[in-house]
Design a protein around this nucleic acid. Structure first.
Length: 418
RNA sequence: GCCUGGGUGGUGUAGUCCGGCCUAUCAUACGGGACUGUCACUCCCGUGACUCGGGUUCAAAUCCCGGCCCGGGCGCCA
């Protein structure tokens, strides 16, 4: 008989008197340890009664076929060693006999993460990033890391978190925008960064975090925004295909099926979107950004036409100052999925004079953008890029309705621990 | 920033609208006991809670005011 060692946590103990069942949990899943009184030593049989749920143990055992409904194999122990005890009662139940609220779960996240379904989210997240790197590296992108402690806002807009940097005031970066563009000026041509966004907005919703992650990308020598959109749709197509092929068990356990969207993704012009929205009761004015309700209406419209992923492009030129204007439109785009924005991007302005003019037109002072503007004075190629929220994307893939589920230790309006 | 909903044992809940029959429900957990094929094991016994402060009232988990904590929607965004 071959002896083997199993290590893990005690998920459950079922004591029937003359026979005991011990369910062990580890990263691979659940394993049944069976202890018939007559087939194991008295010491082991008795010591099992002293074990608590979530104790960490190592078991020397023999593997054999099981009669159990839920297990193909079971293990007959010859030795059980307690590696560490768990206290009782537990602050939440990893075996999920009773549910727990999000707040309780997050306060005890390490226990929450012992649940299979929760673990799977992060397994899939890891795979998603693996395939993202795989795809982008194959497409000749260079992975970079840029500073998260910065001296000023890189693009205005959202509020920044101030930090004390020795004797100076600094901020946490809301986006690597400026640095990505610097890398275009540096001649790297194609870069991406898997990065943190820090945003000091006091929002309190299921779709927002104050500390979130993103796949940020920038590429030079593009013709227009379509070059970027093509990379983005191919990236999404590639990662979803790989996930559906290689994460079958995790997806099955989560009862989620990944529908790999067909290429190319639907493009809808802003004008067209506004028309659809008017037909469906929205009072959006031309020039307005789409509100949350507008995005939802559009998402429903797309769903009716069997479309999950769709680009919105040709926005009015007043969207963001650094996006390339194109008549009364601009070369920015959003990628939405089921009514939620998961990416925004576009072709950037590369001409110094035009950029200064745009900054002024947006009511900003070019003096505040001196460092930013310098990059455009010594040979900046045409370029563009996007930022894709990883948690937002995961929410859509895995049909999760709270973004906090998609990050290990969420930071929101109220939570800064654990 | 604006608007809203909530807080009952370790955990998840019932009860709150319409105050009294609440000595607070149920499940799970925890402690003890019985049980040789469980698989949400089962059965018996036990332990354990009204967010805090003030007010109204003969009487407050329940009504009112304030604090603390948390959720959600909008704006903004990813």
């Amino acid at each position: 008989m071959i002896k083997m060692i199993l290590k893990g946590w005690i998920h459950e103990i079922r004591d029937l008197g003359g026979i005991k069942f011990l369910i062990l949990r580890n990263r691979e899943g659940l394993h049944q340890i069976v202890l018939p009184k007559k087939k194991v030593s008295k010491d082991i049989f008795d010591m099992v009664s002293t074990l608590n749920k979530e104790d960490v143990i190592a078991i020397e055992c023999e593997k054999r076929d099981s009669r159990a409904k839920d297990f193909e194999f079971e293990y007959l122990p010859s030795k059980i060693k307690i590696l560490n005890k768990s206290e009782t009662p537990l602050p939440l139940d990893p075996a999920e006999k009773v549910s727990a609220e999000m707040d309780t779960r997050l306060d005890n996240r390490f226990l929450d993460l012992r649940k299979r379904k929760i673990f799977n989210i992060f397994k899939i997240r890891s795979e998603l990033l693996k395939y993202t790197r795989e795809f982008l590296l194959k497409e000749d992108f260079i992975e970079i890391h840029t500073p998260k402690i910065i001296s000023t806002a890189s693009e205005g807009g959202t509020e920044l978190f101030p930090v004390q940097y020795f004797e100076k005031r600094a901020y946490l970066s809301q986006s690597p925008q400026l640095y990505k563009e610097m890398m275009m000026a540096a001649g790297f041509d194609r870069v991406f960064e898997i990065t943190w966004y820090f945003r000091a907005e006091e929002h309190n919703t299921r779709r927002h975090l104050n500390e979130s992650t993103a796949i940020d990308l920038e590429m030079a020598f593009i013709k227009d925004e379509e070059d970027i959109m093509k990379i983005l749709e191919n990236l999404i197509h590639y990662t979803l295909k790989k996930l559906s092929e290689n994460c079958k068990n995790e997806l099955d356990e989560m009862e989620v099926k990944i529908e790999c969207p067909e290429l190319p993704f639907k493009r809808i012009m802003y004008d067209e979107a506004v028309k659809i929205l008017h037909d469906r009761g929205s009072n959006i004015k031309w020039g307005d950004d789409l509100g949350t309700e507008d995005e939802k209406i559009l998402g429903r419209y797309m769903k009716e036409n069997n479309i999950d992923y769709y680009f919105i492009k040709k926005f009015p030129e007043n969207k963001i100052f650094y996006i390339m204007p194109d008549g009364k439109y601009c070369r920015g785009f959003d990628l939405d999925c089921n009514g939620v924005e998961i990416t925004s991007g576009g072709q950037r302005i590369h001409d110094h004079g035009l950029l200064v003019k745009r900054i002024q037109e947006f009511g900003l002072d070019p003096e505040n953008f001196k460092d930013y503007l310098k990059v455009f004075r010594y040979g900046m190629p045409p370029h563009g890029g996007f930022g894709m929220g990883i948690e937002r994307f995961l929410m859509e893939i895995l049909k999760i309705d709270n973004i906090r589920e998609c990050i290990l230790f969420p930071r929101d309006r109220n939570r800064i621990k654990p």
